[in-house]
Write a protein that binds this DNA or RNA. Structure first.
Lengths: 159, 159
DNA sequence: CTAATATTCTTCATGCTATGAACGATCAAA
DNA sequence: TTTGATCGTTCATAGCATGAAGAATATTAG
């Protein structure tokens, strides 16, 4: 294939990596727009929405747990919780077993909103998949799977 | 395969869309970490780094142009520029043709940093590609290409 | 030529995101 | 029972981002 041009493989790689960089940036931008759109639609800050979606299985979460799941500092969680409590979407009760921790749970309204949000997200990603042919869908997912692993791998190589 | 369960296609779609959602979130998180890592490494805020990378071809940019490229308000650009000027990475001169506009260009140091940053980004994405077999690379890119288009399409469907 | 309108950038007030240090309360273990 | 760890909060700080208002300049219509 590259018997004439000496470094055509390198050029291809260069071209492809630029393309990859652009694509990732565009996808990132798209996701950011989606998040901000939902935040405006629900009239709830993005961080609070993200938090609202954490209550999938569990009935109660702790501030520490939320901090880990959201990957933010504990102090950030306090602030987010204040917003959610103020909006009556979440309520906190003392853990009977340990007076240090507070159990945070969704209110009725919180559950409603959380479900609504979850449904929108699921619907969104389903629509995304439906843009592909059924046979392609598996491929897209496995593609992203490898991409994610590669990103982790490359991240760990970073200085 | 699905001769017994009636709605296994729906279940598959549901499963896949959940998987897609998780994957996108993980990839997003990875990108965010990368950005924040570079910001710390260069000791320059993320927005300023993003701006620094805008000077690829053009010698000069205007505040308006930067605002469009970064997709932020003009007032935000003023602030970012103050930071960059203060760090001596960028300098602004009056446009001789139109006294309203200021031409913003990289200083020597700014050019150095900009190049350095670009090299790191390219290297990063090259490493990412090298995690794949050569035949797979094309596929990953076309996958992302379709994914991006689909996202745009779905975005336009959003209420 | 001039008055009205556009454009370009800045300033200011506001609000969200996020961190880290310091702190008080509580728990667990030596 | 002291000592050390854990949990949540408060506070100071910094970055991100917008939109309204304004000053300077350009353009255009009359």
């Amino acid at each position: 294939m590259n018997d004439q041009k000496p470094d055509s493989a390198d050029m291809l790689l260069g071209y492809q990596s630029q393309r990859l960089q652009d694509l990732i940036e565009e996808i990132l931008h798209c996701c950011k727009e989606r998040t901000s759109h939902l935040s405006k639609k629900f009239d709830i800050p993005e961080a609070e929405l993200r938090c609202l979606m954490l209550f999938g299985e569990e009935r109660y979460l702790t501030a520490k747990g939320i901090a880990q799941k959201l990957d933010v500092a504990k102090s950030r969680v306090t602030k987010i919780m204040n917003g959610l409590i103020h909006k009556n979407l979440v309520e906190s009760t003392d853990d009977p077993k340990d007076a240090r921790v507070k159990l945070i749970g969704l209110t009725q309204e919180g559950q409603r909103r959380s479900k609504e949000l979850g449904a929108i997200m699921t619907d969104l990603h389903q629509k995304l998949l439906l843009e592909f042919e059924p046979e392609q869908r598996k491929m897209v997912i496995s593609c992203l799977e490898v991409l994610r692993s590669s990103m982790e791998a490359v991240k760990n190589q970073m200085v």
